[in-house]
């Protein structure tokens, strides 16, 4: 639902979206090793599949976005992961738009990078609790979605006055998803920390 379709945004906005995405993509890809391909692809595929799982939560039907999860597990490489997931979602499943892939990647990818930083630096604190992964996973997951929705609403609102009400509508519809993703990311981070810690990003 955080995808913007074609033809809605101001051209200047999605054009600069492509430029910024190209820059971040070039930088993050330079940090990527060829051995990272399997891990990255599995999580990218997971982000793709998870966004297709809808479930009823209260009055709305919601689905996972998992950008915070990508950040916590992949670190910097969450950005190419989200880019690939969005491209495939657009071309295989017709979710979102073609011209808006750049800006949609920013909307989801930049919060993912922030979630990663939060998780990475958070884990360094000694809080005296056993599973810090759960705490910082929850925070990262929640903040990543909240920021993604915020970015989306700002973009819609700045495009034109007529989109202001749409922006408010979109933001309200996402409040349950923020809570769900926060809990999801927290639980999975805790689970992975005990089962397979190398899947979490600690670099």
């Amino acid at each position: 639902m955080v995808h913007i379709s074609d033809g809605i945004l101001d051209p200047l906005l999605w054009e600069s979206g492509w430029v910024i995405t190209a820059i971040i993509l070039a930088y993050t890809l330079s940090k990527m090793k060829i051995e990272d391909v399997p891990k990255l692809s599995v999580i990218t595929a997971a982000v793709f599949v998870a966004s297709l799982i809808h479930f009823q939560f209260g009055p709305t039907s919601v689905h996972f976005i998992l950008n915070g999860f990508a950040g916590v597990t992949l670190g910097l490489l969450a950005y190419p992961c989200i880019f690939v997931a969005l491209v495939l979602q657009c071309f295989l499943f017709q979710h979102g738009g073609v011209t808006t892939i750049g800006i949609n990647t920013i909307n989801m990818g930049v919060p993912a990078l922030l979630a990663y930083l939060l998780f990475k630096y958070g884990m360094r604190f000694d809080l005296g609790i056993k599973q810090k992964e759960i705490l910082f996973g929850t925070l990262g997951g929640g903040i990543a979605v909240a920021l993604a929705v915020l970015f989306l609403s700002i973009e819609l609102a700045t495009t034109g006055e007529e989109f202001f009400e749409v922006a408010i509508f979109v933001a309200t519809a996402h409040i349950p998803i923020i809570a769900i993703e926060a809990i999801f990311t927290g639980i999975t981070a805790g689970f992975l920390a005990t089962v397979q810690p190398e899947l979490l990003c600690r670099r």
Partner: peptide, 28 residues
Amino acid sequence: GDLYTLTTVSKAIAMLFVKSYERADRVF
């Protein structure tokens, strides 16, 4: 629509990752 569902689904998905990750590594 409750917390129990969310916890169970989360753990099931996390297990899915672990399995797929190992398989992806082997395949690669």
